[in-house]
Simulated scan of single mutants.
Amino acid sequence: MSSSDAVWLPQDNITGCGWHYTDLSQHVRGQGSTVEAFVASPLTVEALSVCEPLLQAKSLHFSNIWFKTDNQVLLNALLSKDNSSRVCRIHPDIETLA
């Protein structure tokens, strides 16, 4: 399971994301963080908080991962089959990695 969170400084267009992975026994199996510049919207921040952990999970050779989110806009965009989704345009890596 992956838990992630992000903070956005809109006046500076900068975001920071942090995450960790746990197994079913709640043991931490990995963690990471990143800072991104030129982030212009809250949806982009939320998309990055999914994409970055997915990229690291791939490098760690994780084959299954669960994400939890409280962002309904992000969730609907990710579950949508519409390729014009704002999230897909923001970060096509999410769909590829998922």
Rank of each mutant, 00 (worst) to 15 (best):
A57Q: 02
V45I: 03
V73F: 12
Q26I: 02
L78E: 06
K68S: 06
A6G: 09
L75I: 02
T44G: 11
N83Y: 14
V35R: 15
R89E: 05
L48P: 04
S84M: 10
S59R: 12
Y21C: 01
T34I: 12
D70A: 06
R29S: 06
A98Y: 10
R86M: 04
N76V: 08
H20A: 04
H27V: 01
E46G: 03
S85N: 09
S49G: 06
E52N: 13
P10Y: 10
R89T: 01
A40P: 01
L24I: 15
D5Y: 14
F62W: 12
L79F: 11
Q56D: 10
P10A: 07
Q31S: 12
L74S: 01
L43T: 08
S80K: 11
F38C: 07
S84D: 07
V7L: 07
S25W: 13
A57M: 13
L24A: 14
H91D: 12
H91F: 06
K68L: 13
N64H: 15
S3Y: 12
W19H: 04
P10K: 11
H91V: 02
S25K: 15
C51N: 12
L48Y: 08
E46A: 06
L24E: 09
N76T: 13
F67K: 07
A6L: 07
T22C: 14
T69I: 09
N83G: 08
V45C: 14
F62M: 07
S33K: 10
N83E: 14
W8L: 08
V28A: 02
P92V: 08
S4H: 02
S63K: 13
Q11W: 13
S25E: 12
V28C: 10
D23Q: 14
C88G: 00
A57W: 13
R29Q: 09
M1A: 06
L97D: 01
L43C: 00
L43R: 03
F38L: 10
L9Y: 08
H61V: 01
R29N: 06
S63G: 02
Q31N: 15
F62T: 05
Y21Q: 04
F38R: 08
I94Y: 05
V87G: 12
